[in-house]
Amino acid sequence: MKKLLFVTVFAGSLAALAVTLYLMLTIYRGDMDLSDGTGAAPNEHSERIVVISQEQGSYVMNEMQKGARDAAAVHGMMIDFWGVYRSNVEELLKQVDIAIASKVDGIIIEGVDRPDFARLVNKATEKGIPVITINSDVPGSLRKTYIGSDHYREGILMGHHLAAQLKGEGIVGVVMNADTSDTDQLRLRGLREVLNAYAGIRLVFASENAAKLQAGMQTDDILNHYPGVKAFIGLPADSGKSIVEAADSRSKRRASEVFMFDDSPQTESLLRAGLVQAGLSQHYEEMGKMSVDLLRRWLDNDRLPLDASYFTPISVVAAPGAKEAAP
């Protein structure tokens, strides 16, 4: 009788432990945002891929996820969306490591121009997991390809438009991302290449101490040092409102003109209101779709090798009444 009771209690304890572990894993998976799959019905042999974002929940990532999800459904692939908030690079690196340890079939990720990030991309590649970078690149790594805008070309397009709006003269304040990225540098290189032809245009930046601050504070700092600023150009997405408010609060003269490198809903609203003079049209949903399509090609060994980069279309979106620039 005692033996039967012991077996019964032991079996019940094992069952309870199993249920507890299952719930813990389920909760952990939910907390890590690892369970946002497609609506397709893949079989047990379907490839599993993961998309990892630097800015989970942002407009940019939501658009890319939409395109990736639709493409994965077409290809019958399982897809998870992971990500970090507020550009937490250390957490991003951990998630890449988790993806490698999970033996996923492919990784699509926004690149970070850091040696430790490149090493993880190379680690995944050496273990047979293809990595595709999207929206921002790590060209020195073993990633299979990059999909997204040509950021250098973005700078050239915006440089021509800005020069036309300023009629070739004026001080332009540049608001940077708090963590200067390779994307910023490519855009600035394109801008400078165009604007160097205009002796009357000068680019200025926030002081060293203010360069790591938010957009509004950088704008204030630039105005402190260069009160004659005629225009601002913002590199961080969704920074237009902060730039406009900071610039308008400092002067009773005509508000400075503002130019942006994005076409987020916030920027579109400011364009319609005439508070921003131009934005840059991106195609984030197309980036997401193309990244999954090309990963499918790689896994199928179809039409390889892939090109080093696949650039999506870009174009200047001007406020009503703005002067068009030569491309």
Rank of each mutant, 00 (worst) to 15 (best):
N224M: 07
I243C: 03
K241T: 09
R254W: 03
D262C: 12
S264I: 11
F232Y: 07
A246P: 10
D248G: 01
E268S: 09
L223S: 02
S242K: 09
V276M: 10
S256F: 00
Q218S: 04
A246K: 13
A255Q: 13
K241P: 02
L223Q: 00
L223D: 04
A231L: 09
L275K: 15
S242Y: 04
L275M: 10
P265T: 13
A231I: 12
E257W: 01
Q266E: 15
D220P: 07
M217P: 00
V244H: 03
D221A: 05
V244K: 00
Q218R: 01
V229I: 13
F232E: 06
S249V: 04
K252N: 14
A246N: 09
G234N: 04
P227Q: 09
P265K: 05
S242T: 06
A247E: 04
F261A: 08
V276L: 08
S264G: 02
F259Q: 07
A237F: 09
T267C: 14
V244Q: 04
A237H: 14
N224S: 10
I243A: 07
R253P: 01
F232S: 09
G240I: 12
L270P: 11
G274W: 08
V258K: 08
I243V: 13
G240H: 08
R250E: 12
A273H: 00
I222N: 03
K241C: 02
A247V: 04
P265Q: 05
K241H: 07
D262V: 04
Q266N: 14
Q266A: 15
F259M: 09
R250F: 14
R253V: 10
D221Y: 01
V244M: 03
G274L: 13
L235I: 15
F261I: 08
R253Q: 14
I233V: 12
G274T: 05
P265E: 06
L235T: 02
R253E: 14
T267W: 10
P265D: 13
D248I: 01
F261G: 01
T267V: 14
G234C: 01
E257P: 00
S256K: 12
P227G: 11
R253Y: 08
D238I: 02
D263F: 07
H225S: 15
V229R: 04
L270H: 03
G274E: 10
Q266F: 06
